[in-house]
Amino acid sequence: MNYSTVLFYIFALITIGSAVYLVTTKNIMYSAVALFISLFSIAVLYILLRADFIAITQIMVYVGGILILLLFGIMLTRKVTEVDITSNALNVIPSVIFAVGITAILIVIMLTTKWNIRAPLNNEVTVNQIGKMMLTGYLLPFEIASIVLLVALIGSAMYARKSKQ
């Protein structure tokens, strides 16, 4: 067995394990840290799939952006304002049904699809292709996404500013 296969199984287990811990623990800070571990090992799985650009983007967006904002929010609410937040489980039965359903669908898809397997190409430069596609074939979605982000920026700046009254 190739050692990257071993790595795959280790990190797949870490991803699932930390995700399970994330939803079961009561301590919200532990949930955030479990989310960190889970997102990071997903990035490792992307690297094992040789999608290095997506892996780094995963770290940049989720770990560098969203997770830090989450941690920041938790810290501000819990320690500064002395409000004790615990993450209780709500709607246990519907969510279990939903999760089992999705898992079943995914397993069925996994078993019935014909996978096109090919040997990995070494040192494929994907960034150039992604850049070209973003500015040619996918220009409109790209521009719309950037306008949405700009609107969100302006909106948050407006809310953050003190009103004049």
Partner: peptide
Amino acid sequence: LNIGLFYFFAITSISVVGMLIGGW
């Protein structure tokens, strides 16, 4: 890496998470 610089900017955010956890 063919995306080395991007990797560097992304990976430094991990130490920010560490600092947040440590401070909290």
